[in-house]
Amino acid sequence: MTDLLKIGSYDFHSRLLLGTGKFPDLDTQQRAVDASGTQVLTFAIRRLNLDNPDNPNFLEQLNVSAYTLLPNTAGAQTAAEAVRIARLAKASGLCDMIKVEVIGDMRTLLPDPIGTLQATEQLVKEGFTVLTYTNDDPILARHLIEAGAAAVMPGASPIGSGLGLLNPHYLSFVIEECAGKVPVIIDAGVGSTADVAQAMELGADAVLLNTAVAGAKDPVLMAEAMKLAIEAGRKGYLAGRIAKKRYANASSPLEMMIE
């Protein structure tokens, strides 16, 4: 059975999107990317250090044609800054996807919902495939879909916190709101394989993570573990879990007991 993740005009077998920050070194990063089975890698856009332009750069070592690149607008605090970064990313000629991220508060790194919506509207008009980092807010998700977002990416908890799914109930509202329209990619805050499986069991279409792998004691092993957790959670979701009951319900027959 083919179970593809569809984002805009793109189809993916893997439902794990991987960030490329904070890995201990480029070799570990490459092996983690391979182990994760991911097809989508996120990057940030920054000024080149002109005093040291030959610093090793992961993108330049990567077979870029093997992956879909998802640059982000990380660092933007207004819609205008996000749009500027997105245009720079697209001008590289390497991608037309953009992960819109407009941060409203530097301590929590929670998104600014108004700037996020404005940037999404503008970039959709300019022809980008827009994946939007947002709060676990189903109403905002509806506005993002109306604006033409190709995917809605609610955070599970603050970026890099590893706190897991703080509000699975609201995330499930977001998933319901987006169902049949655009995929939901849980983005930010997942810390463990359990978190990832939980997100997929809730009905999320994919998970984007970075720190949970890059910061693990063994990033390569964790990348593989995350791949398996995605698959387990997805299959569990498709298979349909049993309803919860308050009391026991015996699995063995209660008739014909030996007396």
Binding site: T42, R46, R47, L59, A74, G155, I159, N210
Partner: peptide, 25 residues
Amino acid sequence: REHYANTPVAEGDKIEIVHFVGGGC
């Protein structure tokens, strides 16, 4: 990129040179 050679520069111009770096969220 194809227009670098025919884009004249003048004293005081503001030039930003950016690239992709590792990053997630």
